[in-house]
Design a protein around this nucleic acid. Structure first.
Lengths: 335, 335
DNA sequence: TAAGTGAGTGTAACCGTGAACATCTTAATG
DNA sequence: CATTAAGATGTTCACGGTTACACTCACTTA
């Protein structure tokens, strides 16, 4: 069972392989009748083009690289799947999606122009910058999603986590809260730093209170939220509201309250971030912040698509606004 | 800025490109001193091999395809990410992972021997069978994960969902429950059918009761669990225990109970399936079933790795046993 | 009627790498 | 010192496509 190549077809059709190549690429140089015959033959023989050969001569790979900061923690699986899904739907046909983590590829250092035709970097951390720099140097069409980056020669779609944190904390302030705790995310993540900054600023601007013993470091997983909350509740006094910087940690935090006999939100309020798909079904329903992930991914992929056909395209930047989602996990203290 | 090829290096080193090729592939035919010099030069020039050329002559693609039944529903994102992560860790270096859905590829029909060096099919549904058949026909090294398939010429790693369902329902029976409802998953999913079968068998074998109005169809998303539960609670009488066939739907179901004034598990018990990462932090903690996902993925990827180096390897089959996870969402009616 | 035109097809080179085979060096052997 | 074997390197071709250029042939056109 030999592989079918354009030469196999050429032989059968009594033409040169060049004609076959042209026919299959719908070149205007070939007579319509010839095209038809050749296409039919290709179909019958089950011809599939060899992308290595094609790529070799055309200097492309038919691969779009999708790179995540880190596959182990922090990147929400659902976000990842979202990116893949959208990318598949919006990218021109013929491209495959190749997945890897920035981390592992920075190490091996083998990312080059002819390995990928383009790249989507879903970045969480400033640590990715050298990697991004490398891609740009190699003139790889690229978009950076999720995190706002400083350089202006790259298309970049992100959400304003700082603003999201401010919005939700100001809401808590409006509900009468004055004493706040926080369960932070991994320090290397820009999102975590931004949310923290929003927290700090709202506290300061409103003369609210926070204390070191009300602040704990988590890692975006439920376990860490649970543990952090237990620690905080061990303090002599407790705040009235806790900002868990993502919904997974908020879930763990709620559980910790339950275990120690605190009712949420009656005894203590908890706010989350990200509006996970199950957050509105928790007990209590989580008050949280929704990032416009869909539009980010969608616009990002569209930008890359355009970039692929027009490498000289001016970079597009967009910082999308998060939405406050008010549900039941924050108590109204004014009543 | 020309691309660096082995000929560029050859010129600089005053050797032929063949020698460079051999040196970089660590052939014993080349003197140690020459190798060293060439490697140094390659490094300095930032040489990256052209995989298209390499693949063209070696008849490979350096790509492992990871195929999911359907990216939109049913495949839990965390499972997908798990597969990717493991595959990256266990596959030999040099391979990239390419992601796609069975659905979209069956349509285009362009999966061929020289597009992928191997494939991991994460299958949910019997609908994938023709696709799997195609891959096998094209002699592509392949493993099928997640679902048990009938043919014996393919390595296959799955979990016994039927047994998992039996285990957890028998536990509920032991706790004194006799009236059961069920919220099923997407009908096309084998996992959903198996869990359903386990449910039916336990009911029958133990002379327990279920009724049409206690049975609803969901789609594995929280929303559907919520809706299904509301429906069930609308019946004149209600069962004492509901089997939500995954944890996401169980989460929605718990919420529905809450909204309608039923306490879980005091008034009604709910059991889940899958043991999601947040399930042990819910209120109440979910009693559920854990699939040994890790070992499945790990062994599956190992099998593929072996298959890549030895295409004649005998197929490996394994059906892993799920574990019952008892927590707080089932009431002990015997007390 | 010879030359020009353009549509349709073929020839040959090329993309970057690996490998069969040829060639050249060097050391070992009698 | 001539002969040989082994070691090191070079030459050439192949992989399966695309493309610049050459060619054929029928049809215009002056």
């Amino acid at each position: 069972m030999e592989e079918v190549t354009i030469r196999t077809i050429a032989q059968r059709a009594n033409v040169s392989h060049t004609t076959v190549s042209r026919a299959l690429n719908d070149s205007p140089l070939v007579k319509e009748a010839t095209k038809k015959k050749i296409r039919q033959l290709a179909d019958d023989l089950g011809y599939v083009p060899n992308l290595n050969a094609k790529g070799l001569v055309e200097q492309r790979s038919f691969l779009i690289g999708v790179f995540f900061s880190d596959l182990d923690t922090g990147t929400s699986p659902s976000f990842l799947v979202d990116v893949i899904k959208r990318a598949r739907d919006f990218l021109p046909k013929g491209y495959s999606l190749s997945l890897d983590s920035v981390e592992s590829l920075s190490a091996s250092g083998t990312v080059s122009r002819h390995q990928y035709d383009g790249a989507i970097v879903v970045s969480q951390s400033k640590k990715d910058d050298p990697f991004i720099e490398t891609l740009i140097k190699r003139r790889l069409p690229i978009v950076v999603l999720n995190r706002k980056i400083d350089r202006d020669d790259v298309s970049n779609f992100s959400t304003n986590d700082y603003l999201g944190a401010k919005k939700i904390l100001e809401y808590a302030i409006r509900m009468g809260h004055r004493q706040f705790g926080i369960i932070g995310g991994a320090t290397s993540f820009v999102s975590a730093a931004d949310r923290r900054q929003g927290f700090d600023d709202v506290i300061r601007e409103n003369g609210a209170e926070t204390r070191p013993e009300w602040q704990r470091q988590g890692n975006y997983l439920p376990e860490s939220g649970y543990q952090a909350m237990r620690d905080i509740l061990g303090a002599a006094e407790t705040p009235t509201c806790i900002f868990a910087t993502n919904d997974d940690m908020a879930t763990g935090a709620v559980r910790a309250c339950q275990d120690l006999g605190y009712k949420v939100p009656a005894d203590i309020s908890i706010i989350g971030y990200d509006d996970m798909n199950y957050s509105k079904y928790l007990v209590p329903r989580l008050t949280t912040v929704r990032k416009p992930t869909d539009s980010i991914v969608q616009e990002g992929v569209s930008a890359l698509t355009e970039l692929l056909s027009n490498p000289a395209m001016a970079p597009v930047k967009k910082v999308a606004e998060p939405t406050l989602i008010v549900r039941d996990s924050v108590k109204d203290l004014r009543k």
